[in-house]
């Protein structure tokens, strides 16, 4: 399988934050959800992909090409959606599109017209007068109108109402009917990903905690609930994260079979949500167990 996105031991250091040896890859035709709490390093990772900042070490390859050396050729094949509006407020939707269009050799005007119609975007309206949802839809229409092979989205759904969020996710799913396209989708709203993602990568404090297929993650991982007395130090090594209170415990485990074998019917084993996994992996208390 061809890797469209390949991060190999990428590091970037700031005074108060560091991205440490980030390694993951995305294959053609899949959606990867990139999740982590605020300040985990999601936007920094995306900025590195987009060449908005320079890495300190490691290698970033997009479509098999070095990200810095082939910057323009890569960007021709990328569509991007950021969490903030970067368009000129004084321009109308039409004027903004006319500005961006000449930079993409593969711009498809009929495709853009289709998205404008589908998203009900007013061409003559100034961007500053569009709602947040409209701006996001416009951003998506621009990103999708030049036959991009990789769509990079930085928290596109944050601050949007559920109706617009749903529309956006539907558009993404429609897009993915084309097996040639891949999506890298960063978010802290994990429910968005339960619907669309094929792969999940979790980042916290600048480090990748895991990168797996969503199905693998939701099948293998489990939430274990039981009485406190059942716990001993031997059991704890099977847990990725553990939460105790005076009545009992709740833990996240990475191997459902092992847990069933270990506890039998004495505990309740449930399928976790992505939110559960994220919370257990990124919790900051003394009961947090190493994810490895």
């Amino acid at each position: 399988m061809e890797k469209v996105l390949d991060f190999i031991n990428v590091s970037k250091h700031y005074m108060d934050f560091s991205l440490k040896n980030v390694t993951f890859s995305l294959e053609r035709g899949y959606i990867m959800g990139f999740i982590g709490p605020n300040g985990a390093g999601k936007s920094t990772t995306i900025k590195l992909m987009m060449n908005l900042i320079k890495k300190d070490s490691g290698q970033i390859k997009i479509f098999g090409l070095d990200c810095e050396k082939n910057n323009i050729a890569i960007k021709e094949r990328i569509g991007f959606v950021y969490d903030e509006n970067l368009f000129y407020g004084e321009l109308t939707v039409q004027e903004m599109k006319d500005f961006i269009r000449p930079f993409y050799k593969k711009w498809d005007e009929s495709l853009f017209a289709r998205y404008i119609k589908e998203f009900n975007l007013p061409l003559k309206k100034k961007i500053k007068h569009l709602s947040k949802g409209m701006k996001m839809k416009f951003s998506l229409a621009i990103a999708l109108s030049h036959h991009a092979e990789l769509l990079i989205m930085d928290e596109p759904t944050s601050g949007l109402d559920p109706v617009i969020r749903n529309e956006l996710l539907d558009a993404l799913q429609f897009l993915l009917q084309d097996e040639n396209k891949s999506v890298f989708f960063s978010t802290h709203i994990t429910s968005d990903l339960e619907k669309v993602a094929d792969f999940i990568t979790i980042i916290n404090q600048g480090e990748i905690l895991l990168s797996k297929t969503k199905d693998e993650l939701l099948e293998e991982y489990c939430i274990v609930k039981g009485r406190k007395e059942l716990l001993n130090s031997n059991h704890q090594k099977h847990f990725i994260g553990l939460k105790k209170n005076k009545y009992g415990f709740e833990a996240l485990a990475g191997n459902k079979r092992e847990i069933t074998k270990l506890f039998g019917d004495s505990v309740v084993v449930e399928k976790p949500s992505l939110d559960d996994i994220l919370l257990f992996l990124t919790r900051k208390d003394e009961d947090r167990v190493s994810p490895h």
């Binding site: 987009m50 908005l52 960007k75 950021y82 970067l86 368009f87 000129y88 993409y104």
Partner: peptide, 18 residues
């Protein structure tokens, strides 16, 4: 000033423009 206000430098650098 308008470029800075909209943070549009980020947009320009993200487009295929050197």
């Amino acid at each position: 000033a308008l470029e800075d206000q909209n943070n549009s430098g980020k947009l320009l650098v993200s487009l295929p423009i050197t």
